[in-house]
Design a protein around this nucleic acid. Structure first.
Lengths: 171, 171
DNA sequence: GCTATAGCCGAGTAATTTAGTCAAGCAAAC
DNA sequence: GTTTGCTTGACTAAATTACTCGGCTATAGC
């Protein structure tokens, strides 16, 4: 599992779709504009998200993408795994370079770290991120109305963060 | 904090030094051969490790590197932080790109992940890795003799692991 | 003092990966 | 049958990583 800006873009875009698909599918053009992510790049990412069953597409005018599952059932790790290359879980044992038993020593450290990271990301659902987003945007409104039922007409949320302290993980 | 092969090499090399510095300093040439890491690259890494006070150098013939502190007091995160660029902890707040409050949303997720990773790596001491290494190499011998007091004449340990499932983290 | 050893340092380069573009389609709605 | 918007694959640019290279400095031992 890799966590580069690719994964971050994917998570951000998924949150955007979750926040905006109350009335029909969300087009990538919208997501692109709101989140300032290149449209072509989004197309690439959503192709993978679709093939991994996280979103579903509707073609033609009025089309776009919907979440294929409930936000509560989508974890951050799902999203990241989807957009990155298939995880060949080639562990120490199966590797040619791991020719000395002792090589597995530091490997164990990283493997253990990986497990930690994976577990953590698996525990964070898209729903929780979406809830966070709604809360921050309009905390007062959040209590009164159910945003899931009405359009989000304010200035679009910009969720993506291009901070230099990038998370960049391979599991 | 970044975790690429650079960090892995550094950790591996530090274990190697810890395992072999019972009789005077360890030369990078030895480490290079044992761990199959380019000598020039090691020089680069150890320059940083030295400047961060993790190892100390002895120049001239018979010279090399010693650990500057007890293995128990050196954490994996120390090593990784040492070899990677100075962590500008520019968080969401200080960033130009973080112009909308909402950008901090996904940022929070990554920041939290980073904290997890850091805490984990901070909790792993070089000593524990060295103990692991000794145990795996010769479990029976381990009980009987104190390896810290005698040369390690067997075939050198090769600790490094070039497995594709790379850990690659920026905190 | 000479010489060999081994650390020290900075600039430069090769390889890989990431992020993104481009172009040519295809499906469905109107 | 035209427009919208997803679909696909190949291609490119930028950034990063993982090195190499060359020349230097300190020190031990003859």
């Amino acid at each position: 599992m890799k966590l580069t800006t690719k994964g971050r873009f994917a998570v951000t875009a998924m949150i955007d779709v979750a926040l905006n698909n109350h009335e029909g599918p969300v087009t990538l053009a919208e997501v692109s504009e709101r989140q300032k992510i290149s449209l072509s790049y989004l197309e690439q990412l959503f192709g993978k998200l679709r093939r991994h069953g996280l979103v579903e597409s509707v073609r033609g005018p009025g089309g776009g993408y919907n979440l294929a599952k409930l936000p509560a059932t989508i974890s951050v790790s799902d999203v990241i795994l989807a957009v990155d290359e298939p995880i060949d879980t080639t562990s120490c044992g199966g590797e040619k370079n791991c020719f000395e038993e002792q090589q597995c020593l530091t490997h164990h450290l990283w493997a253990s770290l990986n497990a930690h990271i994976f577990t953590y990301l698996q525990g964070v659902s898209l729903e929780s991120l979406v809830d966070d987003a709604r809360e921050r945007k309009s905390p007062s409104i959040h209590v009164v109305r159910d945003l899931r039922k009405e359009p989000f007409s304010e200035r679009p949320l910009t969720l993506n963060t291009h901070v230099p302290s990038v998370v960049n993980v391979t599991v």
